[in-house]
Nucleic acid binder design. Structure first.
Lengths: 235, 235
DNA sequence: TATCTGCTGTGGTCCGACCACGCAAGGTAG
DNA sequence: CTACCTTGCGTGGTCGGACCACAGCAGATA
């Protein structure tokens, strides 16, 4: 058992039993090291891991906002993990697209038209209707739009996963624009498809919204010359 | 910019440009520290994070398997992140179940009956048919079955997500057995539903497999008294 | 030739020190 | 009495050094 793992286990236990709750402060690094009979380095390594996982947040100085305190940001871990594993080329665009389809079709079918996420999606929809947008700006809004729609379903985990995928989505969507025969044409199609998705959710058409968003995602990648996300081994 | 972040960025860059590839060794901690003009502690903190993310693996000693070398295990980050955030009570069972439905319905619809994952699922199916299984043993196999079916779709990211959810699935499925009116009855139903899912995949019935696995997942949680995964705010 | 024994480099752990930061209490000038 | 300023103190951030256990490898030995 490595020393920092002991610290991780201790903190995990404190969290599970409720002795440590959201917003509370951890003991100081020096105190924690003495309490668990490990070095301060080991404590710091554990805290670094928790920080990377989005479980705690560290700040120097004194006062109520200083020190290491418990947060709850499930997205940081997913986002950096996905980014890193895409750096190792272990993750392909196909995988991202398919995961989007799986998550977003479910989310579209369960989206609540009265949620904050839906309102944000509507605002982004309006912003994307501006005529003087460049491709990069449009795709930035597009990625945020899809994250917002997904969060309208009210599922913390699915929202976190979609949020974590945002950067990857944006990057690859941008890279694929060069493969498109006519960006303006595609952009206008995307706009009308977005409106269709929002309309379907607003009228409570779960199946319609689900089908529309699937076609919306798959058609873009098909149009960009990837032959559709389902046929990675296509001729 | 914190020191360990500098190390993370350097390694991420090495990975992206391909100077560091899967299976290769990182420079020693002391060498890396000197090269980047940071302390060895900072290097270690960065490596710890990468280790928690499943990007590298450290081993003491000498020889080809010693030192810190690049791996590719996207599951470790997800699994520990999900576990930690469930400890903070930021994730609920409802969220897990809904995510399962989203991922597994897609995976069932895209599962390949000739893949290794499908073969493993069939083997687990046979193992679950044994009559002398306790609830815990059955649910362990059940969780592995669902992960295997999901991996049959051939998507690295979705497989990783499902694998990461396995521990959580198993835990909560086990806790819910006490709510069931008749475990033997439910268990037999689960068995036949599993056979139905496998049969649907084998005959290429995407829609059928998808519907079956959704009902399979949702019915269990409904039967356990949660009123269905979609009605978390039910009376 | 076969075996043993150091040597070397690896990560693992610990200690002590110093720094920058930022609030809070106290002193100080008005 | 009020408003400002100084100082103290605890926080995380960083650094250098030291020692340990481990595992392979090369040279010495039987």
């Amino acid at each position: 058992m490595k020393s920092h793992q002991l610290v991780l286990n201790w903190i995990d236990d404190e969290l599970q039993t409720g002795r440590l709750a959201l917003g509370q402060r951890l003991p100081g690094e020096r105190a924690l090291a003495q309490q668990l009979s490990v070095s301060r380095n080991s404590v710091r390594e554990a805290i670094r891991i928790l920080e990377a996982m989005g479980v705690v947040r560290s700040a120097v100085g004194s006062g109520p906002d200083a020190g290491t305190l418990v947060t709850a940001d499930p997205t940081t871990a997913l986002a950096s993990a996905i980014k890193l594993h895409m750096s190792t080329s272990h993750l392909q665009v196909k995988d991202i697209v398919q995961t989007r389809v799986a998550l977003e079709t479910w989310a579209a079918a369960h989206a609540d038209a009265k949620s904050k996420g839906f309102e944000e999606a509507e605002a982004l929809l309006a912003a994307m209707d501006a005529k003087d947008l460049g491709a990069a700006e449009f795709l930035t809004l597009d990625a945020r739009f899809h994250v917002a729609v997904s969060s309208a379903a009210g599922n913390v985990l699915i929202s976190a996963m979609m949020f974590s995928l945002r950067e990857s989505i944006q990057r690859y969507a941008g890279e694929l624009t060069s493969n498109l025969p006519d960006w303006e044409l595609t952009c206008n199609r995307l706009r009308s498809e977005h409106h269709g998705i929002i309309a379907a959710i607003r009228r409570g058409d779960s199946v319609g919204a689900s089908d529309l968003i699937r076609d919306h995602i798959e058609n873009y990648y098909r149009e960009a010359g990837l032959g559709g996300p389902d046929t990675s081994s296509a001729p």
